[in-house]
Nucleic acid binder design. Structure first.
Lengths: 110, 110
DNA sequence: TTCCATACATACTTTTTTGTATGTACTTGT
DNA sequence: ACAAGTACATACAAAAAAGTATGTATGGAA
Protein backbone atom coordinates (compact mmCIF):
# COMPACT_ATOMS: atom_id res chain seq x y z
CA UNK A 1 0.00 0.00 0.00
CA UNK A 2 1.16 3.49 -0.64
CA UNK A 3 -0.10 6.83 0.54
CA UNK A 4 -1.22 8.40 -2.68
CA UNK A 5 -4.86 8.05 -1.88
CA UNK A 6 -4.69 9.26 1.69
CA UNK A 7 -3.29 12.68 0.99
CA UNK A 8 -4.01 15.66 -1.23
CA UNK A 9 -1.30 17.90 -2.62
CA UNK A 10 -1.77 20.12 0.39
CA UNK A 11 -2.10 17.61 3.19
CA UNK A 12 0.71 15.52 1.75
CA UNK A 13 3.07 18.46 1.63
CA UNK A 14 2.03 19.45 5.10
CA UNK A 15 2.52 15.99 6.57
CA UNK A 16 5.95 15.58 5.04
CA UNK A 17 6.93 19.05 6.22
CA UNK A 18 5.84 18.05 9.69
CA UNK A 19 7.86 14.84 9.50
CA UNK A 20 10.92 16.78 8.43
CA UNK A 21 10.58 19.15 11.33
CA UNK A 22 11.26 16.25 13.67
CA UNK A 23 14.56 15.62 11.91
CA UNK A 24 15.70 19.07 10.92
CA UNK A 25 18.62 20.81 12.47
CA UNK A 26 22.32 20.38 12.36
CA UNK A 27 22.64 17.68 15.02
CA UNK A 28 19.53 15.53 15.24
CA UNK A 29 20.47 12.95 12.67
CA UNK A 30 23.94 12.62 14.11
CA UNK A 31 22.34 11.86 17.45
CA UNK A 32 19.83 9.43 15.99
CA UNK A 33 22.41 7.52 14.00
CA UNK A 34 24.30 6.92 17.24
CA UNK A 35 21.21 5.28 18.70
CA UNK A 36 20.07 3.17 15.77
CA UNK A 37 20.38 -0.54 16.23
CA UNK A 38 19.26 -0.58 19.84
CA UNK A 39 22.15 1.46 21.16
CA UNK A 40 21.85 2.98 24.63
CA UNK A 41 24.04 5.97 25.36
CA UNK A 42 24.74 8.40 28.15
CA UNK A 43 24.84 12.15 27.72
CA UNK A 44 28.62 12.25 27.97
CA UNK A 45 29.02 9.37 25.54
CA UNK A 46 26.98 11.17 22.94
CA UNK A 47 29.00 14.29 23.58
CA UNK A 48 32.20 12.42 22.88
CA UNK A 49 30.78 10.51 19.93
CA UNK A 50 29.63 13.63 18.09
CA UNK A 51 32.59 15.90 17.46
CA UNK A 52 31.86 19.58 17.62
CA UNK A 53 28.54 19.41 19.41
CA UNK A 54 28.19 21.59 22.49
CA UNK A 55 26.47 20.60 25.69
CA UNK A 56 23.82 23.18 25.01
CA UNK A 57 22.99 21.84 21.59
CA UNK A 58 23.11 18.25 22.71
CA UNK A 59 20.80 18.91 25.65
CA UNK A 60 18.43 20.98 23.55
CA UNK A 61 18.11 18.47 20.74
CA UNK A 62 17.77 15.53 23.11
CA UNK A 63 14.96 17.34 24.86
CA UNK A 64 13.22 17.97 21.56
CA UNK A 65 13.62 14.42 20.36
CA UNK A 66 12.25 13.14 23.64
CA UNK A 67 9.28 15.49 23.54
CA UNK A 68 8.57 14.38 19.98
CA UNK A 69 8.53 10.76 21.08
CA UNK A 70 11.55 9.69 19.08
CA UNK A 71 13.93 8.94 21.93
CA UNK A 72 13.52 7.83 25.53
CA UNK A 73 15.36 9.30 28.49
CA UNK A 74 16.10 7.28 31.60
CA UNK A 75 17.69 8.97 34.63
CA UNK A 76 19.30 7.03 37.47
CA UNK A 77 19.35 8.76 40.86
CA UNK A 78 23.05 8.43 41.47
CA UNK A 79 25.93 10.77 42.16
CA UNK A 80 27.45 11.71 39.82
CA UNK A 81 24.26 11.56 37.76
CA UNK A 82 23.67 9.01 35.06
CA UNK A 83 21.16 9.41 32.26
CA UNK A 84 20.66 7.05 29.37
CA UNK A 85 19.15 7.69 25.97
CA UNK A 86 17.70 5.22 23.50
CA UNK A 87 15.23 5.15 20.62
CA UNK A 88 11.53 4.58 21.13
CA UNK A 89 9.75 2.13 18.86
CA UNK A 90 8.60 5.00 16.70
CA UNK A 91 12.15 6.26 16.56
CA UNK A 92 13.26 2.89 15.24
CA UNK A 93 10.46 2.98 12.72
CA UNK A 94 12.33 5.84 11.11
CA UNK A 95 14.83 3.47 9.54
CA UNK A 96 12.92 2.63 6.35
CA UNK A 97 12.28 6.31 5.66
CA UNK A 98 15.92 7.22 6.12
CA UNK A 99 16.86 4.28 3.96
CA UNK A 100 14.60 5.58 1.22
CA UNK A 101 16.26 8.97 1.47
CA UNK A 102 19.68 7.36 1.20
CA UNK A 103 18.54 5.47 -1.85
CA UNK A 104 17.32 8.72 -3.35
CA UNK A 105 20.61 10.56 -2.80
CA UNK A 106 22.37 7.53 -4.24
CA UNK A 107 20.48 8.05 -7.48
CA UNK A 108 21.57 11.63 -7.89
CA UNK A 109 22.96 12.31 -11.39
CA UNK A 110 26.66 13.27 -11.75
CA UNK B 1 18.79 -4.21 -0.95
CA UNK B 2 19.04 -1.68 1.79
CA UNK B 3 21.74 0.80 2.66
CA UNK B 4 22.92 -0.47 6.00
CA UNK B 5 26.19 -1.74 4.67
CA UNK B 6 27.04 1.26 2.55
CA UNK B 7 27.09 3.81 5.33
CA UNK B 8 28.67 4.28 8.73
CA UNK B 9 26.96 6.15 11.57
CA UNK B 10 28.72 9.26 10.41
CA UNK B 11 28.39 9.01 6.66
CA UNK B 12 24.79 7.89 6.99
CA UNK B 13 23.87 10.81 9.17
CA UNK B 14 25.71 13.13 6.84
CA UNK B 15 24.05 11.79 3.71
CA UNK B 16 20.58 12.02 5.16
CA UNK B 17 21.28 15.52 6.41
CA UNK B 18 22.36 16.43 2.92
CA UNK B 19 19.20 14.91 1.46
CA UNK B 20 17.06 16.88 3.88
CA UNK B 21 18.78 20.10 2.94
CA UNK B 22 17.30 19.73 -0.53
CA UNK B 23 13.83 19.63 0.98
CA UNK B 24 14.07 21.91 3.97
CA UNK B 25 12.38 25.23 4.18
CA UNK B 26 8.86 26.34 4.54
CA UNK B 27 7.85 26.18 0.88
CA UNK B 28 9.80 23.56 -1.02
CA UNK B 29 7.52 20.64 -0.37
CA UNK B 30 4.47 22.69 -1.22
CA UNK B 31 6.08 23.48 -4.55
CA UNK B 32 7.13 19.89 -5.18
CA UNK B 33 3.73 18.47 -4.38
CA UNK B 34 2.25 20.75 -7.02
CA UNK B 35 4.56 19.22 -9.60
CA UNK B 36 4.30 15.55 -8.70
CA UNK B 37 2.56 13.40 -11.25
CA UNK B 38 4.06 15.04 -14.28
CA UNK B 39 2.49 18.44 -13.70
CA UNK B 40 3.88 21.42 -15.57
CA UNK B 41 3.26 24.81 -14.04
CA UNK B 42 4.04 28.43 -14.70
CA UNK B 43 5.42 30.81 -12.12
CA UNK B 44 2.13 32.58 -11.69
CA UNK B 45 0.20 29.32 -11.44
CA UNK B 46 2.41 28.17 -8.61
CA UNK B 47 1.98 31.52 -6.96
CA UNK B 48 -1.78 31.15 -7.04
CA UNK B 49 -1.70 27.49 -6.06
CA UNK B 50 0.36 28.08 -2.92
CA UNK B 51 -1.47 30.48 -0.65
CA UNK B 52 0.74 32.80 1.33
CA UNK B 53 3.90 32.40 -0.68
CA UNK B 54 5.56 35.60 -1.85
CA UNK B 55 7.17 36.10 -5.22
CA UNK B 56 10.51 36.40 -3.53
CA UNK B 57 10.24 33.09 -1.76
CA UNK B 58 8.80 31.32 -4.78
CA UNK B 59 11.56 32.58 -7.04
CA UNK B 60 14.24 31.80 -4.50
CA UNK B 61 13.07 28.26 -3.83
CA UNK B 62 12.51 27.49 -7.50
CA UNK B 63 16.04 28.62 -8.23
CA UNK B 64 17.40 26.38 -5.48
CA UNK B 65 15.39 23.38 -6.60
CA UNK B 66 16.55 23.89 -10.16
CA UNK B 67 20.18 24.24 -9.12
CA UNK B 68 19.87 21.07 -7.05
CA UNK B 69 18.56 19.20 -10.08
CA UNK B 70 15.11 18.52 -8.70
CA UNK B 71 13.08 20.66 -11.07
CA UNK B 72 13.50 21.87 -14.60
CA UNK B 73 12.88 25.41 -15.83
CA UNK B 74 11.81 26.17 -19.38
CA UNK B 75 11.52 29.77 -20.54
CA UNK B 76 9.69 30.82 -23.68
CA UNK B 77 10.85 34.05 -25.28
CA UNK B 78 7.48 35.72 -25.42
CA UNK B 79 5.99 38.91 -24.12
CA UNK B 80 4.69 38.80 -21.49
CA UNK B 81 7.21 36.13 -20.49
CA UNK B 82 6.24 32.52 -19.95
CA UNK B 83 8.26 30.10 -17.86
CA UNK B 84 7.30 26.56 -17.05
CA UNK B 85 8.46 24.35 -14.23
CA UNK B 86 8.39 20.57 -13.97
CA UNK B 87 10.16 17.80 -12.09
CA UNK B 88 13.31 16.17 -13.36
CA UNK B 89 13.59 12.40 -13.27
CA UNK B 90 15.50 12.64 -10.01
CA UNK B 91 12.80 14.89 -8.63
CA UNK B 92 10.22 12.23 -9.44
CA UNK B 93 12.43 9.65 -7.78
CA UNK B 94 11.70 11.45 -4.54
CA UNK B 95 8.25 9.90 -4.32
CA UNK B 96 9.18 6.65 -2.57
CA UNK B 97 11.15 8.53 0.06
CA UNK B 98 8.31 10.92 0.75
CA UNK B 99 5.95 7.98 0.87
CA UNK B 100 8.13 6.36 3.48
CA UNK B 101 8.06 9.53 5.53
CA UNK B 102 4.28 9.66 5.28
CA UNK B 103 4.09 6.08 6.43
CA UNK B 104 6.31 6.96 9.36
CA UNK B 105 4.19 9.90 10.49
CA UNK B 106 1.16 7.69 10.09
CA UNK B 107 2.61 5.34 12.69
CA UNK B 108 3.03 8.04 15.28
CA UNK B 109 1.57 7.03 18.67
CA UNK B 110 -1.36 9.04 20.14
C1' DT C 1 1.79 57.91 -24.42
C1' DT C 2 0.35 55.44 -20.73
C1' DC C 3 -1.05 50.91 -19.14
C1' DC C 4 -0.95 45.99 -18.57
C1' DA C 5 0.77 41.34 -17.65
C1' DT C 6 4.59 38.27 -16.42
C1' DA C 7 8.59 36.81 -14.10
C1' DC C 8 11.50 38.06 -11.74
C1' DA C 9 15.45 41.30 -8.67
C1' DT C 10 16.93 44.02 -4.67
C1' DA C 11 17.24 46.51 -0.16
C1' DC C 12 15.90 46.16 4.24
C1' DT C 13 13.71 44.23 8.53
C1' DT C 14 12.13 40.56 11.50
C1' DT C 15 12.35 35.95 13.21
C1' DT C 16 14.57 31.61 14.03
C1' DT C 17 18.49 28.83 14.72
C1' DT C 18 23.03 28.10 16.28
C1' DG C 19 27.09 29.12 18.99
C1' DT C 20 29.99 30.98 23.14
C1' DA C 21 30.89 31.49 27.74
C1' DT C 22 29.90 30.66 32.21
C1' DG C 23 27.33 28.81 36.23
C1' DT C 24 24.90 25.15 39.20
C1' DA C 25 23.71 20.92 42.09
C1' DC C 26 25.08 16.84 44.02
C1' DT C 27 28.19 13.71 46.69
C1' DT C 28 32.42 11.08 47.10
C1' DG C 29 37.50 11.13 47.54
C1' DT C 30 41.81 13.59 49.40
C1' DA D 1 38.08 22.62 52.86
C1' DC D 2 38.34 21.64 48.28
C1' DA D 3 38.64 19.40 43.83
C1' DA D 4 36.34 16.09 40.65
C1' DG D 5 32.80 14.08 37.66
C1' DT D 6 28.12 14.31 35.47
C1' DA D 7 24.23 16.41 33.38
C1' DC D 8 22.50 19.92 32.70
C1' DA D 9 20.76 25.67 32.69
C1' DT D 10 21.15 30.45 31.26
C1' DA D 11 22.55 35.01 29.27
C1' DC D 12 24.24 36.87 25.41
C1' DA D 13 26.04 37.19 20.48
C1' DA D 14 26.34 35.76 15.72
C1' DA D 15 24.52 33.72 11.68
C1' DA D 16 20.92 31.97 8.72
C1' DA D 17 16.21 31.94 7.04
C1' DA D 18 12.02 34.25 6.06
C1' DG D 19 9.17 38.27 5.21
C1' DT D 20 8.02 43.22 3.42
C1' DA D 21 8.10 46.68 0.15
C1' DT D 22 9.34 48.32 -3.98
C1' DG D 23 11.53 48.29 -8.63
C1' DT D 24 12.62 46.52 -13.51
C1' DA D 25 12.33 44.78 -18.57
C1' DT D 26 9.47 43.64 -22.39
C1' DG D 27 6.25 44.77 -26.26
C1' DG D 28 1.47 44.87 -27.61
C1' DA D 29 -3.14 47.08 -26.59
C1' DA D 30 -5.89 51.31 -25.71
Amino acid sequence: MNNHEKYTRYSGAQSVTEALKFLEGRWKLLILFQLFGGQIMRFSELERAIPGITQKMLGQQLKQLEKDGIIKRTAYPEVPPRVEYSLTQWGQDLCPALDALLTWTGKRPR
